[in-house]
Write a protein that binds this DNA or RNA. Structure first.
Lengths: 334, 334
DNA sequence: TCGATTACTGAAATCGTTTACAGTACTCTC
DNA sequence: GAGAGTACTGTAAACGATTTCAGTAATCGA
């Protein structure tokens, strides 16, 4: 693979390396014959420039780093998909690294990506790690997903977690539910915290007394949703609706309810958050707060690319809006 | 980010760049005082070595390239997850690139990764592109996922598609089904072709006359599974079981059946392939052919890493075995 | 015919590292 | 006190590209 260098091509074609480089980059004036000959030799030898060497001198790698907390489920695959599509269209690669929760891990990942990427997209919903990022401010083009850092330190895109959750809960209230349970996400997770806050806001606005036993904690996995719902069913006064902080947990909850012989939505309503592609194929189809996840990735990549091209410019904070998608799992189709 | 170089550190610490390099790589003898001083200056200046420069001289990038057909759904997120975990543990990064179907796209992706990765994991189920890969043989460490290339050209890992599909269909037959439909995958897709072949083998072995109208084509998406099932329901003699070439399509099929008011498995049995994490949370829980997808990724990464370390060695062809997971969607729990 | 312009090409510096090689300054050993 | 080792450190040559600068040959206008 990396055996044939620009020198080989130059020697074989009887020109200097400079000329080969010029042919390759279609830069300056090269006579048609020379260009032709070099191109021919290059393709015969199977030459393609060495990325590292190139980026050493051009000071650009044409690669974006992507740091994610963990690669699990459709949520992350959709994000990566969005980022990759946008990056690829602009001729960029993406360097993915997952499972970075602790400060040290993030630090290490950042260091080891130095000189390999032109900028980074970081999704670090854990509230703890925000401080690490703080230090890094300004030294490197970064786009934050689901940050929760103070405004204008970084470019960032956040989901309208609070508004979306509030809206869904209000919808449930509107359809007569008052005992609405929530399967919340990890406590230290920013998105989870905001969604929970949205739930609480809606409950308060609806003058429903707060009942702590109605909120159980999950970790965004189907398994934890299943466990959460099971726990809720043991309550003396059973909730009439369950709002899960993401679709995976909602799906786990659905399955737990079925196991207990409960009908959804007749006996108990269920709603999720994210609208992963599978949500509409559930039985019953899952009502959820729609987030265009892949768009989230696209936006992040676009933002990062624009900041690479434009250099210094004011930081941008974007919000990704959510919409209610009412299917039949919450019984509020009317 | 890339402002502070080894020279800066050297100057600041009053030593040569060689010494700094030695401290960093913990290589040769450096006096404790010097080491201490250099380390202190380095961390004060926030130095970390420039990846490109480093890999230029060391001729190693500590990165693996991953070429995928498309990043969609849990299947791919699980694969990437498996690869990333293994790579990370070995101190490697992964460079992901998706949506490469045509020969030209794969070519371009391969070229542009030159000098940026030490080896590649390629998943190119399309039978067409196999020829492109052929050309590349031997020039670069490559592990193929779901290949279908002739043995011993590359390291490869393939799923036991044929055996798994056959086993599932035999299971359905054993439970009394004779009109078994299949929602197959894309025709030019290797995995899809093998799974279909497994279905046909099982039908033949069971002396069930082949009925072409029982096989409809999908593209591995939920949507196409939904469409496929809908189509099958229009048949005069309705099938009593549907075997989908992957879980996403099976899930789509489930949803179509529910919409038509059919009970699963009482009216019609459904089975899938892959056992994505969600399968068990379906309603009813989906019977499927279990594939440890994340292990597939891990194995691929492990294989590639070992070939990087060991250099030339005989090619390895591994098979990833499948197991039947009978849940209630196919009614054969007994 | 001469100088200027144009069109093309090559030599060499550069990017930020690693590493072979060549010192230097000790400490031992006899 | 000479020679040999040891422990450390610096110089400089790579790695494979890009790019500035200068040089050459051909063409052109006067």
């Amino acid at each position: 693979m990396s055996l044939v260098t620009i020198k080989d091509v130059a020697r074989e074609a009887g020109v200097s390396v400079a000329t080969v480089s010029r042919v390759w980059n279609e830069a300056a004036f090269v006579s048609p014959e020379t260009r032709q000959r070099v191109a021919e030799v290059a393709s015969r030898l199977g030459y393609s420039p060495h990325g590292a060497a190139r980026s050493l001198i051009t000071r650009t790698t044409c690669a974006l780093g992507v740091l994610l907390p963990d690669l699990y489920g459709e949520f992350f695959s959709e994000i990566i998909r969005g980022i990759d599509h946008t990056a690829q269209a602009a001729g960029y690669h993406i360097l993915v690294s997952s499972s970075h929760d602790s400060k040290d891990e993030i630090d290490a990942a950042l260091r080891s990506m130095r000189g390999r990427v032109d900028g980074m997209i970081i999704m670090s919903p854990d509230l703890e790690t925000q401080r690490t990022l703080h230090a890094l401010q300004g030294s490197f083009p970064v786009v934050l997903l689901n940050g929760g850092v103070e405004a204008n330190e970084f470019d960032s895109i956040t989901i309208e977690n609070h508004a979306g959750a509030r809206e869904m809960v209000l919808h449930l209230v509107k359809h007569g539910h008052t005992r609405i349970a929530m399967i919340a996400g990890p406590e230290r997770n920013y998105d989870a915290a905001e969604r929970r806050r949205g739930y609480e806001t809606a409950m308060t606005e609806s003058n429903i007394a707060h009942d702590n036993s109605l909120v159980v904690l999950g970790d965004f996995s189907e398994r934890s949703g299943h466990a959460g719902a099971t726990q809720l069913l043991t309550l003396e006064r059973r909730p009439t609706a369950i709002f899960a902080a993401n679709d995976s947990m909602a799906i786990g909850a659905l399955s737990a309810l079925h196991e207990h012989g409960l009908r959804v939505p007749e006996d108990i309503a269920v709603a999720g958050f994210d609208d992963i592609p599978l949500a509409r194929y559930m039985n019953p189809p899952l009502s959820t707060v729609h987030v265009d996840i892949s768009l989230l990735g696209e936006r992040a990549a676009t933002l990062l690319l624009s900041s690479l091209l434009q250099g210094q410019r004011p930081r941008q904070q974007q919000q990704l809006s959510t919409t209610l998608v009412i299917r039949s799992s919450c019984g509020g189709l009317s």
